[in-house]
């Protein structure tokens, strides 16, 4: 009996160890810093698109990049809340590096974190495959888009423009948070560096 309770105890052992928390934070900071290097791209795109009034597209084109930390940490540490923590910390890095969004980045981080976590929640933290990843992408795109409509006043745009923005964001998120994440996880899988 003693043995049995021990076995179930091991099974239920929380993934939230000190080491895993540090790991999530480190991965979030790494991705945050890599995107920081791509930050000029956002400014350049915005400058290029502003004369046409299409600046919101810069945001949606790069959305996938900013939403990568969530699915990545969610995939590596497979437990409730890891995608949220990774995404939120990734956004916080931008704040401390002096990003152009200020307090807005904290809030975006919260929204993006909840959004990418929700995808894993919907699959019950069981589907760590292409399907689970796509669930996370879907919730990320829908929730962040709804949030940006409020924050950036996109709900005042006409329907075709809104659709255009939505599709752009979906493609961007699919490429970065989807395809790129899958490739990274595949590399990790092959290297057997981590128990996936």
């Amino acid at each position: 009996m003693d043995n049995k309770s021990q076995a179930s105890g091991v099974k239920k052992q929380s993934q939230w160890t000190l080491r895993n928390i540090i790991l999530i934070a480190l991965i979030a900071i790494f991705t945050g810093i890599i995107f920081w290097g791509a930050g000029f791209l956002y400014t350049a795109l915005t400058v290029a698109l502003t004369p046409f009034g299409m600046a919101p597209f810069a945001n949606d084109l790069l959305m996938g990049l900013w939403c990568m930390a969530g699915p990545l940490t969610g995939f590596i540490i497979r437990t409730f809340g890891s995608a949220f923590l990774g995404e939120f910390l990734g956004a916080s890095v931008e704040v401390f590096l002096g990003g152009q969004w200020g307090a807005g980045a904290f809030i975006s981080g919260l929204v993006q974190g909840i959004a990418s976590e929700l995808g894993f929640t919907l699959t019950g933290y069981k589907r760590y495959d292409w399907f689970g990843l796509n669930a996370s992408i879907f919730t990320t795109v829908v929730i962040t888009f709804a949030w940006d409509m409020i924050r950036n006043g996109c709900d005042k745009f006409s329907l075709p423009l809104l659709l255009g923005l939505f599709v752009t964001r979906y493609i961007s998120t699919f490429i970065f948070a989807g395809v790129l994440t899958k490739m990274i996880v595949k590399l990790l899988d092959r290297s057997k560096a981590i128990n996936l």
Binding site: F30, T31, L72, I76, K186, L187
Partner: peptide
């Protein structure tokens, strides 16, 4: 920033560093 290898290597460093840091803290 679109190369999977860059992230792969970053994650390898993260795994190693998280281990070291946790040990050091303990």
């Amino acid at each position: 920033f679109w190369s999977p290898k860059l992230y792969f290597k970053s994650i390898l460093s993260s795994i190693q560093w998280s281990h070291n840091l946790a040990e050091a803290m303990t």
